[in-house]
Amino acid sequence: MEATLFYILAAVLLIGILLAITARQAVRSIVYLVTSFFALALMFYLLGAPLIAAFEVIIYAGAIMVLFLFVIMMLELESPEKLAKPNFKNWLPALLLAGAVVGALVVLLASRVQAVPPGFTEIPVRQFAFALFKQYGVAVEVVSMQLLFALVGALYLGRRR
C-alpha cells in the first residue's frame, strides 16, 4: 500500500516538474512546482522524515516559491510575449545532456544489487534533534552566518544610490 502510494507520488512529482519546466509562463511553472513539492513532501513523510516533510511545505512551497512569485510580479515579467521561450534549438542540447547524465546515473545506481537493505526505518524527531545539536551544532552556526550574509548582500545590491 505504502509502496504503491510512493510510486504514485513519484509519478505526480516527475510529471509536475516536467510541466513546470515546459510551462509557457513563469507563474504557471511556479504553481506546478508547488504541486510537485507537495508530492515530494509526502514522499519524505513516507521515507520516515516527517520533520523534513513539514519544512519542505513550509520553506519551499511556502516561502521560497512565494519569493519567486514576488520577484516575478515585481519585475512585471508576466506578459508572455515579452520573453523568449526556449525553442527546439535550446531544448536539444538540454535533452541530450540531461539524458546522458540521467542515463549514466541510472546505470550506476541501478546496475548493481545493493547491499542488504536494513529496510526503511522512521527516524523519530528526538533522534533528529539530538543529531542536529550534538553532532552538527557548528553547521547551524555556519548556515546562520550564511543567511546573515545573504541579507547583507541583498541589501547591498538593493541599495539605492
Binding site: L97, A100, V101, L108, S111
Partner: peptide, 20 residues
C-alpha cells in the same frame, strides 16, 4: 552551462561505462 554539463555527462558516462 552547456560545456559544464557536457563535462559532467562525459565523466559520468565514463564511470557508467566502467560499471557496466
Amino acid at each position: 552551462l552547456i560545456s559544464f554539463a557536457a563535462g559532467a555527462a562525459l565523466i559520468l558516462g565514463y564511470l557508467a561505462w566502467l560499471a557496466l
